[in-house]
């Protein structure tokens, strides 16, 4: 009886809800696998997909977004390759699933203005968020950054771990079966030096989460961000969730006169 031949998986980018090869056709061999080497045009396509998905995702009720993130946690929990790291990632998703309908209460409120107006401030998604995930931990490091961005109602284009991209790309498959609408989460693998400029310089990106913990990258990201006044946050692995969420929303203040 001959040994069964394992079915090797072709790793793909996760763009606009679809699993695609890099437009460039290039790959990098990592751990015996040909990993797609995302290109400038893949970035363009990802941002386009994220922008297209943004209004729909932002418009969902907070309750609904919370349930989708919870479903994401359920789907991740059910994977066969569980570990302490994955457990922690699942727990993070559960935590952020519960944030969606608390943001307004914690960050916003009625402003007691000294005039006959109802004035209130409430958070809104900032839009399209670029995530530069750390190389390690590959899954937890990615989830730590994308979860607050998604919970706040943004759509995401993430560059996953450069050294260990396989499990992060698998996360796209988890997202794909967890009610996250196509385009809301986009995952790119590739080389940071090739992806950094097109992504962080893209004029249609509103905010950047830089989790590379690299001073040179930080400077480049900040300079690129200044072109269109992007918001940049640089959380540490220990940063609490509210402090992560704050830079990913815009506080809108509305005024309405009171008087018939």
């Amino acid at each position: 009886m001959s040994a069964r031949q394992a079915v090797a998986k072709t790793y793909k980018l996760y763009l606009g809800g679809a699993f695609v090869r890099s437009e460039s056709g290039r790959t990098d061999p990592i751990g015996g696998v040909n990993v797609p080497r995302g290109s400038r045009k893949d970035v363009r396509d990802a941002v386009k997909a994220a922008r297209a998905a943004a209004p729909g995702w932002a418009k969902k009720t907070a309750y609904n977004r919370g349930q989708v993130l919870y479903r994401f946690a359920e789907a991740l929990e059910s994977r066969s390759d569980r570990s302490d790291e994955i457990d922690e990632a699942v727990d993070l998703l559960v935590h952020y699933a519960g944030w969606t309908d608390k943001l307004a209460a914690v960050m916003g409120g009625v402003n007691p203005v000294a005039a006959p107006f109802l004035s209130f401030s409430s958070p809104e998604p900032t839009g399209v968020v670029a995530v530069l995930a750390p190389d390690s931990p590959d899954v937890l490091g990615l989830v730590r950054e994308i979860a607050p961005a998604l919970a706040a109602g943004n759509t995401v284009v993430a560059v996953v771990s450069r050294t260990k991209p396989l499990r992060p790309l698998d996360l796209g498959e988890v997202a794909g079966v967890s009610d996250i609408p196509g385009g809301v989460l986009n995952l790119l693998s590739g080389r940071l030096d090739e992806l950094l400029t097109p992504l962080c310089g893209h004029r249609d990106v509103n905010a950047i989460i830089d989790a590379t913990y690299d001073d040179d990258v930080a400077k480049t990201v900040d300079e690129l961000a200044a072109e269109t006044v992007k918001r940049v946050s640089r959380p540490s692995p220990h940063t609490d969730s509210l402090t992560r969420l704050e830079p990913l929303v815009e506080l809108k203040t509305a005024w309405h006169p009171v008087g018939s």
Partner: peptide, 30 residues
Amino acid sequence: GVVWQNTYNKFDPTAAFGGYKESGFGREGG
């Protein structure tokens, strides 16, 4: 960042003020 409904240019120290996009980031007030 600020939407005035049936009024305009109202300011108050308790009400956040600041912009989206290239109008800046961070809020002042409240």
